[in-house]
């Protein structure tokens, strides 16, 4: 047995005694390799296909009617022509701003607590778990919740639907993202940096506000921008809270127009003008969210000093 040459072992039936090192495309393993490479590439293409199609469709349908007048005028009454989506653009900006003003301090504060103060006790794990659950709550439920809490009870100056209620509903949606990115961003800050600050006699408060938080600014800012971009496109929570208005915003405690609800309302109307406005609104909204996402990527690529 010991005299049997190794080359005559039966492992490669197709090979001659002196096997070549050249690649043989017809081997089963190489064929399977090619098949799976093609399959994986195909599925990857299918993944980005919807994005490209949606973008292309919205750009063609909505982008074609773009004009300054469209961006600055009020929507026309049913049956009339012309008009624009100016009030909806301003409304979306106002509601998103309210939501950001509420969610950023609470979310960043909560994230700071989780990363810097909590000592991995049961309360911190409960908050972390709760944050994960909250991020999975359907947006319509946030809308109904704020409807029951604020709109139905007329808690603000006896007003029911209002921009403020819409902002609060969106802020609930933004919170989990902001808490999580703050928590994770702060955890990325090297421990040695905190030691350094504490070693020169900084208190915990000074260490966080002057060293840790500025160092983690990049991921936190990115998370905030992404959460605003997500909230700005939400429809369901706004239908229950901010409602809609065909007029210019009348204040924070009155119903307010928004692009997403305008799309929802106008796209199903039997008038061509309104349907065109819905497409225009989709275009503006998609562009706004796209720009915010690109801005978030830009923030993420910035180098700190």
């Amino acid at each position: 047995m010991t005299t049997t040459p190794i080359t005559s072992s039966g492992h490669r039936p197709g090979n001659t005694a002196k096997s070549s090192l050249h690649r043989q495309p017809n081997l089963p393993r190489n064929r399977w390799n090619a098949v799976f490479t093609i399959l994986a590439g195909l599925f990857a293409a299918i993944v980005v296909l919807p994005l490209l199609l949606v973008l292309a469709y919205v750009v063609i349908k909505g982008g074609s009617s773009m004009s300054l007048k469209l961006l600055t005028d009020l929507p026309p009454a049913p049956g009339m022509t012309g008009g624009g989506i100016g009030n909806a653009i301003i409304g979306t900006l106002i509601v998103s701003l309210i939501a950001a003003l509420i969610a950023i301090p609470i979310g960043v504060g909560g994230g700071i607590y989780l990363a810097e103060y909590s000592k991995s006790g049961p309360f911190a794990s409960f908050v972390r778990f709760g944050t994960n659950v909250l991020s999975g709550v359907p947006s319509i439920i946030c809308g109904v919740f704020v409807y029951g809490l604020i709109v139905a009870t007329r808690i603000f100056f006896d007003q029911s639907y209002s921009a403020m209620a819409g902002g609060i509903a969106l802020s609930v949606l933004m919170l989990p993202t902001i808490i999580k990115t703050t928590d994770e961003g702060l955890k990325l800050v090297p421990q040695e940096l905190r030691w350094g600050a504490i070693g020169v006699g900084a208190s915990k408060f000074v260490t966080i506000t002057r060293i840790t938080l500025p160092t983690a600014m990049k991921p936190i800012a990115t998370g905030i921008v992404l959460s605003i971009a997500r909230a700005a496109g939400e429809t369901a929570p706004l239908i229950f809270t901010a409602l809609f208005s065909p007029f210019w915003p009348e204040g924070l405690f009155s119903p307010i127009a928004s692009m997403s609800v305008l799309i929802y309302n106008f796209a199903i109307m039997p008038y061509d003008v309104q349907i065109a406005l819905a497409w225009a609104s989709s275009f503006v909204l998609v562009m706004m969210i796209l720009i915010m996402n690109i801005f978030a990527r830009y923030l993420g690529s910035l180098n700190r000093i």
């Binding site: 040695e192 070693g199 020169v200 006699g201």
Partner: peptide
């Protein structure tokens, strides 16, 4: 905090602040 102001510390790895 008062203790660390009077007894300073230099660490194993250089850890300048990002400033």
């Amino acid at each position: 905090v008062e203790v660390r102001r009077r007894i300073g510390m230099v660490f194993q790895k250089p850890n300048p602040f990002p400033k």
